[in-house]
Design a protein around this nucleic acid. Sequence first.
DNA 1: CTGTATCCCGTAAGATACTG
DNA 2: CAGTATCTTACGGGATACAG
Lengths: 123, 123
Amino acid sequence: MLDVQSPVCKSHHRAMRDTLDVISGKWKLLILSALKERTVRFNELTRELEISPRILSRELKDLERNKLVKRTVRKTRPVTVEYERTAHAATLDPLIEAVYEWGYLHYERVAGTKRPHDPTEAE
Amino acid sequence: MLDVQSPVCKSHHRAMRDTLDVISGKWKLLILSALKERTVRFNELTRELEISPRILSRELKDLERNKLVKRTVRKTRPVTVEYERTAHAATLDPLIEAVYEWGYLHYERVAGTKRPHDPTEAE
DNA sequence: CTGTATCCCGTAAGATACTG
DNA sequence: CAGTATCTTACGGGATACAG
């Protein structure tokens, strides 16, 4: 049988799957992006990203498990928890940047076919 | 500085969502990656990516709808269909490259925490 | 404030069989 | 070969209420 897929393509494929397994989904990159500049508390994130606490909790755990965020409990009055990116997460910056760049540059193109939100736009 | 969500962050967020809406999911980037070098036929893709025809069909339609792949019917013996990337898809190269790079460089790290590997596959 | 516990829905994804 | 038709399962994602 002819070798349809070269070993190069295979490993390429595998590497991409590895990445996608970690960062795919609706939220992970957005969360990491939100943590890019500063440390953020749980509820801050729910508000900023408009994500339900249930989902956020799960996503943060995933990210923590993959060593991309660090969770810190601060013994304040009611107790606050701060999330911050790890150094490892910083290695995702080029990827995040690429995602942002593409969305920014090709916004109109995307808008033509689909565009799900923003209620500020009058209907 | 205490402006929790600056307009910059908002638009950043939006741009990322736009990108994610188009390329998120398990398959789209892998498909585009497979089409990077050459034109590929439908069944070739199902074999190379180990994706079921149903899913592949849907993904290709999505990509076509977003002007990322071009479908060409060749009037051969039983009829073959070739898929190729559009010029627009080429603008995703930096993103795809970033996905590949990260998976490649941080493979070990990922392996430690999760690795849904396919045991049937030997290399 | 920081989550967890339920309940629910839509869709992604897969297996298989079948048609043009 | 290139898909489509079903059917089924799994999971992502959301709403809400509640607990620590």
